Amino acid sequence: MSANTALLLIDVQNYFDDPNHGRRNNPNAEENMALLLNKWRESNRPVIHVQHISNPALAHHPGRDIKEIVSPLPEESIIVKNVNSAFIGTKLETYLREYEIETLVIVGLTTDHCVSTTTRMAKNLGFTPFIVSDATATFDRVSFDGKLYGAEEIHNLALVSLHEEFATVIDTKSVLELLD
């Protein structure tokens, strides 16, 4: 991966630690995000944190804070969004083009919502996204017909729908190997 490949950390926020979200897959996703973040920092590659704040009145609510394990350094970019895509209503695309970043390694929460939406838009805008399967996660969901779908199944189906059309799905170990 080139030196200007950016690590995009999407919505890694305390909000998702609330037990009301239910059961989650990939309990070690944040540790994998931290491994990637440390490698990005060591190699001086660009790091972009995305923070979801739907309601500006709640901008200072502790649940909106980025988790300490991947806390941004002062020189790292933070893109604040209020919808699922990190590209809508933000300066993300402008930033990527200004710094000639063409490839994105995407991690974060949740796989089937903001991670998926941002990944799809990245590809549609001409970027080359890689989504890290074990550095993303989601939660169990009840469908429109009342059936419970497990977090792992939802996660895997979201990745299946992205792979080879919108992104390359890869794991943390493989990303780290590509960087060495």
Rank of each mutant, 00 (worst) to 15 (best):
M1V: 12
S2T: 06
S2K: 09
A3L: 15
A6W: 03
L7Y: 07
L8D: 08
I10T: 00
D11T: 11
Q13W: 06
Y15L: 15
F16S: 10
D18G: 06
D18C: 10
H21C: 03
H21V: 06
N25E: 01
N26M: 15
N26L: 05
P27F: 04
E30D: 07
M33Y: 02
M33D: 14
A34I: 02
L37E: 12
L37M: 12
L37S: 05
L37F: 05
N38D: 13
N38E: 14
K39A: 15
W40A: 00
R41F: 03
E42N: 09
N44Q: 13
N44Y: 07
N44G: 15
R45C: 02
P46Q: 07
V47Y: 10
H49G: 12
H49Q: 14
V50L: 11
Q51R: 15
H52K: 03
H52M: 08
H52T: 04
I53Y: 04
I53T: 15
S54W: 09
A57M: 13
H60A: 14
H61W: 15
G63C: 00
G63D: 15
D65Y: 01
D65R: 11
K67Y: 01
I69H: 00
V70W: 00
V70N: 00
L73K: 09
L73H: 14
P74D: 15
E75D: 12
E76V: 07
I78V: 15
K81T: 01
N82A: 11
N82I: 02
N84W: 10
S85L: 01
F87L: 13
F87Y: 08
F87E: 08
F87P: 11
T90V: 01
T90G: 06
K91V: 04
E93R: 06
T94N: 05
T94P: 02
Y95L: 15
L96K: 04
L96Q: 05
R97H: 03
Y99D: 09
I101T: 06
I101C: 06
I101G: 08
I101N: 02
T103R: 08
L104Y: 08
G108L: 14
L109H: 04
L109W: 10
T111C: 04
D112I: 14
V115P: 01
V115C: 03
S116G: 09
T118Q: 05
A122K: 13
K123F: 05
L125G: 02
G126R: 02
F127T: 04
T128K: 12
T128W: 00
P129H: 07
P129T: 08
P129G: 06
F130T: 09
I131R: 02
I131S: 00
A135V: 11
T136H: 07
T136Y: 02
R141C: 01
V142M: 11
S143H: 06
F144Q: 11
D145K: 03
K147N: 01
Y149I: 00
G150W: 10
A151N: 08
A151D: 11
E152D: 10
E153Q: 10
E153A: 12
I154W: 05
L159R: 02
V160C: 05
V160P: 00
V160N: 05
S161F: 07
S161T: 14
H163C: 04
H163M: 07
H163P: 10
E165C: 10
E165F: 08
F166R: 06
T168E: 13
I170H: 07
S174P: 04
V175H: 11
E177Y: 12
E177K: 14
L178Q: 12
L179W: 03
L179A: 11
D180H: 08
